[in-house]
């Protein structure tokens, strides 16, 4: 089984998000970068499936050279080889086009449910359509049996079990697995594992980020005495009129 996992590198979840250049660019100063948490699940489940089925896992990442520490982390988790497509990831459509160019010949292509920076949640479906493959969104379970994958996926207000013959694209949701933590042997081995750097293919931008803003600060909290908590219901009903 050949598994391809698409990986994003994102600001750590504790990052305070600010912008520079008159709010036209994300302020990278002092920001710690991590593997996108959903992609970490995709890598882990990809490894488990490959290990059980005599397979290999390749990680692909679209990004500049400063993301290589995160790619090495993926290799230290047990990934066999990595590909970095050397380009600034402009938007989901650009990233999907870059990945589609190298994604032939895999049985399973995994992405995270979304990246926690731009939250597009689009690469799974984009890749499916570009490669003319079926795509299964937000999966919490992946099993494999004789060429067919079985997925459990979240749907609105419930869950659904589907099957699909390989090759297929799917996106990882929480609950898929516990992310694997690299051990010392993995970290040593990762140093010499292949990390291929490929040039980007030409692609037209579909979107342009013009500017950013952060949410307006709250006006300040109005405290209600805990002894008289029912006053809250009165306020929500008669002042805010929300219930």
């Amino acid at each position: 089984m050949k598994v391809l996992v698409c990986m994003s590198v994102v600001p750590d979840t504790t990052t305070k998000i600010t912008f520079t250049d008159n709010n036209t660019a994300f302020n990278k100063q002092g920001v710690q970068y991590i593997i996108n948490p959903y992609d970490e699940l995709a890598i882990t489940r990809g490894l488990e499936l490959a290990e059980a089925n005599n397979g290999t896992v390749t990680v692909v990442h679209v990004g500049l050279a400063d993301t290589e520490a995160s790619i090495r982390k993926a290799l230290s988790m047990g990934v066999n080889e990595a590909i970095r497509i050397d380009a600034d990831p402009i938007d989901a459509q650009f990233v999907a086009e870059q990945i589609a160019a190298i994604a032939g010949g895999y049985d399973l292509i995994l992405t995270g449910r979304e990246s926690i920076d731009y939250n597009g949640g689009a690469v799974c479906g984009l890749l499916g359509a570009m490669l003319n493959l079926p795509s299964v969104n937000v999966v919490t379970e992946i099993n494999y049996n004789g060429g067919t994958f079985e997925f459990v996926r979240d749907i609105d207000g419930g869950r659904e079990t589907v099957t699909c013959a390989a090759p297929v694209v799917a996106s990882a949701q929480k609950e898929l697995c516990e992310p694997r933590i690299p051990n010392m042997r993995g970290i040593m081995a990762a140093r010499t594992k292949p990390l291929q750097v490929l040039p980007a293919t030409a692609a037209n931008a579909a979107t342009v980020y013009a500017s950013y803003e952060t949410p307006a600060p709250k006006r300040g909290v109005k405290l209600i005495d805990a002894e008289n908590a029912s006053e809250l219901i009165n306020i929500l009903k008669n002042e805010v009129k929300v219930i």
Binding site: A92, Q93, N119, V138, A206
Partner: peptide, 23 residues
């Protein structure tokens, strides 16, 4: 942008050679 919407929108964008914005 429901779960069903999220699985459709990107594929529709590719079929129509469109720009896509979610959220």
């Amino acid at each position: 942008n429901t779960y069903s919407g999220k699985s459709l929108a990107p594929r529709v964008a590719v079929s129509l050679n469109a720009s896509l914005a979610t959220n």
